[in-house]
Design a binder for these strands. Structure first.
Length: 507
RNA sequence: GGCCCGGUAGAGUAACUGGUUAACUCGUCACCCUUUCAAGGUGAAGAUUACGGGUUCGAUUCCCGUCCGGGCUACCA
């Protein structure tokens, strides 16, 4: 993966007291689903933070739940990250392969009294926050402690799970770079499970989330935990674990969640939430990144069109908001059109090439400047002409098909709109003759010839121009006609005009 | 239910540690440009800063309450 730049001094924030250690962050997806927008945004923030300060980005797959885990989903998540341009320096590490590490940590907690063996079957566990029947219907009671923590199992027998022994009374506090100082009462925290009970001949089962994250974050020397705000309430548990394992907690930075247009949690019913679907739709990764970065973060100024290098330079945890953001697709599309228009043409060309290859329209001679470079120059000019009207990459092969192939059809609605005048066939025929006779093929020559034909025929130039557009590109909407003619070339324009005239005869 | 976090125009955000016409971007509407449609240009509408109290000479900024939204409350992550 990307080479790690030499560690430089961490700008750091005084109150966080970062010593001199370089920044180390991680993105830790769970393969229970695809890479969704929220996850992608979290990955992006971690990446921006790490790359912006010469730190290290680690990728860790949290697959400790054998039941819900779907290994085949990992590939899609990695693909999504790659498309997003979010690379990592270490990993991917898989928690499923680090089981011994977690068991050792759990045993350490058992040994130093920070954890206990709980023999309660999961359904019978008496601790926690269970629902209970009352005169007013089902009620949830406060956290209670199980007798197992005193070594007096309420329901002896069976295999025990390891639970963390949360201190009675007192508070647990930590620093969050986004939400500030946080303090939680220990009495609100249940004795959470560290290790599942073992099956068959196993002493213990797989690690639970809380143990896995903490052990790995310590082991991987993570300095900043940047993740979704849905983990804010779990953080005190983790801080307790850090202490029990004799480690200092990192700086936490919880970023607000991304909600759907109805302000409810973003889910499949809100449409595309899988980043790979945006790639498939033809968004440019950099535009997508720019849009995503602005969800829950602001550079402070008025500029919103921020290329990746700008994001890298400006990103900071201080700019992260505490308010959940709503995903707004129209704005994403706006960003895409902006990038389509403003990107240096040489940066856009590879994307267009991929698109044309995907649709089978690509011609090898268009590839990078060859012998005389004329074909490549033609492609470059054509894409440049087309791009102000393109919204998504696939538009290059659908909407602008006639620019790259002679096999195209004329849009019925376009004919309906611009071919209704009975004089059109004759005008198009005369224009074909006139253009064919042209010695010079350029914008002005096409312009003069067309206007002359219109004038001679006693019609407004617009009538001929619009009809001609439909004839040569098959669309009612296209780039300015004379520029289009230049790009298509004399022979092609003439033959398409005659083909159009012929189509009238048939009809 | 308990605990926690939020609440600035339809959306994303800004407004130095409270200071006076609440700013920018997307979207919407209008006009200009014009050869279609975009883009671009100009302008407009849209916010009693969720609501109600309080502190203060002064609050979007501080405090309390209410309402609304979200999160956590699993041998999920």
């Amino acid at each position: 993966m990307a080479t790690l730049r030499a560690s430089i001094e961490v700008p750091g924030r005084a109150h966080m007291n970062d010593k001199t250690s370089a920044v180390r962050v991680r993105f830790a997806p769970s393969p229970t689903g695809y890479l969704h927008l929220g996850g992608a945004r979290t990955a992006l923030f971690n990446w921006l933070f790490a790359r912006g300060q010469g730190g290290t980005m680690i990728l860790r797959v949290e697959d400790t739940d054998a039941e819900r885990n779907k290994p085949e989903l990992v590939g899609g998540i990695l693909d999504g990250l790659e498309w997003l341009g979010v690379g990592w320096d270490e990993g991917p590490f898989y928690q499923s392969g680090r089981t011994e590490l977690y068991r050792a940590a759990a045993k350490k907690c058992l040994a130093n009294g920070a954890a206990f063996l709980c023999y309660c079957p999961a359904e019978k566990y008496v601790g926690g926050d269970h629902e209970e029947e009352s005169s007013e219907g089902p009620q949830l009671r406060r956290v209670t402690r199980c007798a197992c923590r005193q070594g007096r199992p309420a329901t002896p027998g069976g295999k025990p799970a390891v639970r963390f022994k949360v201190p009675l009374g007192g508070t647990t506090r930590f620093l969050d770079a986004v939400f500030g100082e946080r303090e939680f009462s220990n009495d609100e925290i249940e004795d959470f499970v560290l290790l599942r009970s073992g099956k068959d001949d196993q002493e213990f089962g797989q690690s639970m989330y809380q143990l896995g994250v903490v052990v790995d974050d310590i082991d991987m020397r993570i300095t900043h935990v940047i993740r979704g705000a849905d983990h804010l309430s779990n953080t005190p548990k983790q801080v307790l674990l850090y202490r029990a394992l004799g480690a200092e907690p990192p700086v936490f930075a919880h970023v607000p969640l991304i909600l759907g247009p109805d302000k409810s949690r973003l889910s499949k019913r809100h449409g595309a939430t899988d980043v790979n679907m945006y790639r498939a739709e033809g968004f440019l990764p950099e535009a997508f990144r720019n849009f995503l970065a602005l969800l829950g973060w602001s550079p402070g100024g008025d500029e919103e069109f921020l290329r990746t290098k700008d994001l890298l330079r400006k990103f900071s945890l201080e700019g992260v908001s505490r308010t959940n953001a709503v995903f707004d697709r129209p704005k994403l599309e706006w960003f895409n059109t902006q990038y389509l228009q403003k990107l240096p043409i040489q940066e856009l060309l590879p994307e267009v090439e991929n698109e044309l290859k995907r649709s089978g329209l690509w011609k090898p001679e268009w590839a990078a400047p060859g012998a005389d470079g004329r074909d490549h120059a033609w492609l470059s000019k054509t894409v440049d002409l087309l791009r102000p009207r393109i919204r998504l990459l696939p538009d290059f092969s659908s909407w602008s098909r006639a620019f790259f192939s002679d096999e195209f059809t004329r849009d019925a609605a376009a004919k309906e709109k611009f071919w209704t005048d009975p004089r059109v066939p004759e005008l198009l025929g005369r224009l074909a003759d006139r253009l064919e006779a042209l010695a010079e093929w350029n914008h002005d020559a096409c312009d003069h010839a067309s206007r002359a034909v219109a004038e001679a025929g006693g019609v407004k130039a617009g009538l001929l121009i619009n009809a001609t557009r439909v004839a040569i590109v098959g669309q009612a909407v296209a780039p300015p006609l004379f520029d289009t003619m230049v790009v298509l070339g004399q022979q092609r324009v003439v033959s398409r005009l005659r083909d159009a005239v012929a189509s009238f005869a048939k009809a």
